[in-house]
């Protein structure tokens, strides 16, 4: 096919690629450029493409504001706990799915797949009632608990897929030597499955970090709120502090962006886990 390629294929394809990159990337670049500008220049007409007055001042303002830093602390805390709990539970569940045949396996598996199609907002009203009844309103526990329903299905499916690729001889060798099943899982399977665990962990972190609806509804005070809610609240409070809102958006996106750039391969594997079977 390469030999018969027409002369215009390459420039046309290159143009297409560049147009696509502009569509995807320009809004992000514009956000970063504006986050460095003084407020008065953000909606200048004609636009100030790169401002000579650019500075890191909006970023410093965010970092020096303890209320805003609290959003970051909350997000890191909640996301980290969600990752740990999700990993622990999904490793156990994946072990059951990957190493046993048992009555009800198909049904439970189908149920876990189907949970992915349950819209969060339909559960929000009963969650609110349950969280209030359990005296968990406006607590980290409420967020961690409710996030689990949406991180676990994906984590279990992906982890099971990964464990299925590991030979059964690995854990059976431990058990022949007299070790328990749990030791086989903990000492042999978990270390071997580490790449898969890292992938699931990052994906879970991203989900938890980006969650908005439950964080908005199940918390009340700014001390308990997470970054996405914090950013959206800035819109109301400082309607004119655009550069600070944008700076906070950039800072708030960095953890996920960095994870993505460093572990791209895992991310792609994670994104496609739900819909593509290899």
């Amino acid at each position: 096919m390469n030999a018969k390629r027409k002369w215009y294929t390459k420039p046309l394809l290159g143009l297409g690629l560049l147009l696509g990159a502009t569509f995807a990337g320009f809004p992000i670049l514009w956000m970063i450029a504006n986050s460095l500008k003084p407020n008065s220049e953000i909606f200048a007409w004609p636009p100030v493409w790169i401002s000579p007055n650019s500075s890191l001042e909006p970023y410093l303002a965010v970092f020096q504001d303890p209320a805003k830093m609290r959003f970051f602390f909350n997000s890191y805390l909640v996301s980290t706990i969600v990752v740990i709990v999700t990993l622990a539970i999904s490793i156990l569940a994946a072990y059951a799915f990957s190493r046993f045949d048992f009555p009800g396996k198909m049904v439970i598996n189908a149920l876990i797949i189907a949970i992915q199609a349950v819209p969060p907002i339909t559960l929000l009203i009963p969650y609110m009632a349950l969280v209030v009844a359990l005296r968990l309103y406006n607590t980290y526990t409420a967020l961690v608990l409710t996030y689990l329903l949406f991180t676990l299905p994906y984590a279990i499916l992906m982890m099971t897929g990964y464990m299925n690729t590991l030979p059964k001889d690995l854990d059976e060798a431990v058990m022949i030597d007299g070790g328990s099943r749990f030791r086989a899982l903990w000492n042999v399977l978990v270390p071997t499955a580490l790449p898969g665990i890292v992938a699931v962990g990052m994906f879970t972190f991203m989900r938890a970090w980006n969650e908005y609806l439950f964080a908005l509804t199940l918390t009340r005070t700014n001390e308990m709120r997470t970054v996405p809610v914090g950013i959206s609240l800035l819109m109301g409070q400082h309607a004119y502090q655009w550069n600070q809102m944008l700076a906070m958006s950039v800072i708030g996106s960095l953890p996920v962006l960095l994870l993505f750039l460093f572990f791209q391969r895992y991310f792609i594997a994670g994104m496609t886990a739900g819909s593509v079977k290899t």
């Binding site: 690629l17 696509g20 990159a21 995807a24 990337g25 809004p27 992000i28 514009w30 956000m31 504006n34 953000i42 909606f43 200048a44 007409w45 991203m206 970090w209 980006n210 908005y212 970054v227 996405p228 809610v229 950013i231 959206s232 819109m235 655009w242 809102m245 944008l246 958006s249 708030g252 996106s253 996920v256 962006l257 993505f260 750039l261 791209q264 991310f267 994104m271």
Partner: peptide
């Protein structure tokens, strides 16, 4: 190019909302 194309998916809804509110402002 693939990295650039995936970027929009990395942002949380609140950031995308602010980003496009800025882009789609009358000015």
């Amino acid at each position: 190019f693939r990295v650039v194309y995936v970027l929009p998916w990395m942002f949380t809804g609140a950031v995308i909302a602010i980003l496009w509110q800025m882009m789609l402002n009358p000015n």
